[in-house]
Lab assay of single mutants.
Amino acid sequence: NITNLCPFDEVFNATRFASVYAWNRKRISNCVADYSVLYNFAPFFAFKCYGVSPTKLNDLCFTNVYADSFVIRGNEVSQIAPGQTGNIADYNYKLPDDFTGCVIAWNSNKLDSKVGGNYNYLYRLFRKSNLKPFERDISTEIYQAGNKPCNGVAGFNCYFPLRSYGFRPTYGVGHQPYRVVVLSFELLHAPATVCGPKKST
C-alpha cells in the first residue's frame, strides 16, 4: 500500500531547467500520482495528452512514469508532439509516433530571460542525422557541412553544433522561453508502482 505522493513538484518547480539538447529525465516510481494538482495549476500554456485522457489519469496505474524537462522557445512547443519535424524534434528531443503521455508547457519569461540576454539555454542546430525517439545527444563535436574534414576547428563550413537562445524579456511570445515537462507513461508486464489516488488503496 503506497502512500507517499509522487515528487512532481520537484520537477515542475525546479529552480533551473535543462537546455533542450541535454534534456533532463527523472524516473518516478513507487508513489501516488495526483495529476489533478498539475491539471489545476493555472499558468499552463499547453497540457496535451496522447493515448490517454488527462482527466482519467487519476484512475490509472503505470509501471513507471518518466518526467523529461527542458526549455525551448514558445514557437517550438508545437514540435513536442508525435510525428513532428523541425530543429527541436529532429536534433534535440524526439517523441515516438506511438507516444503515451502528456506534454505540459508554460511561459517562463520572468524566470529564464535576462536584460542583455540569458545565454545559458542551448539547443542543437546541426546534426548529421535525426534523433531516434528519446535519444539524447550531448556531443559538442564540430559539425562538418562541406567535404573538408574540420579536425575539431570551427570555421568555413565547420560549425559548433550548439546555439544559444539568448532570451531577453522584451522578445515577442514566440521567442520567449517556455518550460516543458513531458510525462511518459510506461506500461510493462510488471507490477504497477505509480497509481492515481483512487487506485492506491
Results as ranks from 00 to 15, higher is better:
residue 4 N to G: 11
residue 5 L to T: 12
residue 5 L to S: 11
residue 11 V to E: 03
residue 12 F to R: 01
residue 13 N to D: 01
residue 14 A to P: 00
residue 14 A to Y: 02
residue 15 T to G: 05
residue 15 T to R: 09
residue 18 A to N: 14
residue 18 A to H: 09
residue 19 S to C: 06
residue 19 S to E: 04
residue 21 Y to F: 10
residue 23 W to Q: 04
residue 23 W to E: 03
residue 25 R to A: 02
residue 31 C to D: 07
residue 31 C to V: 05
residue 32 V to N: 08
residue 35 Y to Q: 06
residue 35 Y to I: 15
residue 36 S to L: 05
residue 37 V to L: 13
residue 37 V to H: 10
residue 40 N to F: 05
residue 40 N to Y: 06
residue 41 F to W: 13
residue 43 P to C: 05
residue 45 F to P: 10
residue 45 F to N: 14
residue 46 A to Y: 14
residue 49 C to K: 00
residue 50 Y to C: 02
residue 52 V to F: 10
residue 54 P to S: 10
residue 55 T to P: 08
residue 57 L to I: 07
residue 58 N to S: 10
residue 59 D to F: 06
residue 59 D to P: 03
residue 60 L to T: 10
residue 63 T to A: 12
residue 63 T to R: 11
residue 64 N to S: 12
residue 64 N to E: 11
residue 65 V to C: 09
residue 66 Y to V: 10
residue 69 S to T: 09
residue 72 I to C: 07
residue 72 I to S: 02
residue 73 R to I: 04
residue 74 G to E: 08
residue 75 N to P: 05
residue 77 V to K: 04
residue 79 Q to D: 04
residue 81 A to H: 02
residue 86 G to V: 05
residue 86 G to E: 02
residue 88 I to P: 02
residue 88 I to R: 02
residue 90 D to K: 11
residue 90 D to M: 07
residue 91 Y to M: 07
residue 92 N to M: 01
residue 92 N to S: 03
residue 92 N to D: 02
residue 93 Y to E: 02
residue 95 L to C: 01
residue 97 D to G: 07
residue 99 F to E: 00
residue 101 G to L: 01
residue 102 C to A: 00
residue 103 V to R: 00
residue 103 V to N: 00
residue 104 I to T: 01
residue 105 A to C: 05
residue 109 N to Q: 10
residue 110 K to S: 12
residue 110 K to Q: 12
residue 111 L to H: 13
residue 116 G to P: 10
residue 118 N to S: 12
residue 120 N to W: 07
residue 121 Y to I: 09
residue 122 L to S: 15
residue 123 Y to C: 06
residue 125 L to S: 15
residue 129 S to M: 08
residue 129 S to Q: 13
residue 131 L to C: 04
residue 131 L to F: 03
residue 132 K to F: 07
residue 132 K to E: 11
residue 133 P to A: 08
residue 136 R to A: 06
residue 138 I to V: 15
residue 138 I to H: 09
residue 141 E to R: 09
residue 145 A to I: 11
residue 147 N to V: 12
residue 148 K to D: 12
residue 151 N to F: 10
residue 153 V to W: 09
residue 154 A to V: 11
residue 154 A to N: 14
residue 155 G to H: 08
residue 156 F to G: 15
residue 157 N to W: 07
residue 159 Y to D: 12
residue 159 Y to I: 11
residue 159 Y to L: 12
residue 160 F to H: 15
residue 162 L to K: 02
residue 162 L to Y: 03
residue 162 L to I: 11
residue 164 S to D: 08
residue 165 Y to I: 03
residue 165 Y to A: 04
residue 167 F to I: 04
residue 168 R to S: 13
residue 172 G to M: 10
residue 172 G to D: 15
residue 175 H to F: 13
residue 175 H to W: 12
residue 176 Q to C: 02
residue 177 P to L: 05
residue 178 Y to D: 02
residue 178 Y to R: 02
residue 178 Y to G: 01
residue 180 V to E: 00
residue 180 V to S: 00
residue 180 V to P: 00
residue 182 V to K: 00
residue 184 S to N: 10
residue 185 F to E: 00
residue 185 F to Q: 00
residue 188 L to E: 15
residue 190 A to Y: 10
residue 192 A to P: 12
residue 193 T to Q: 12
residue 194 V to K: 11
residue 197 P to Y: 15
residue 197 P to H: 13
residue 198 K to V: 12
residue 198 K to C: 11
residue 199 K to G: 14
residue 199 K to D: 13
residue 199 K to F: 14
residue 200 S to H: 13
residue 201 T to P: 14
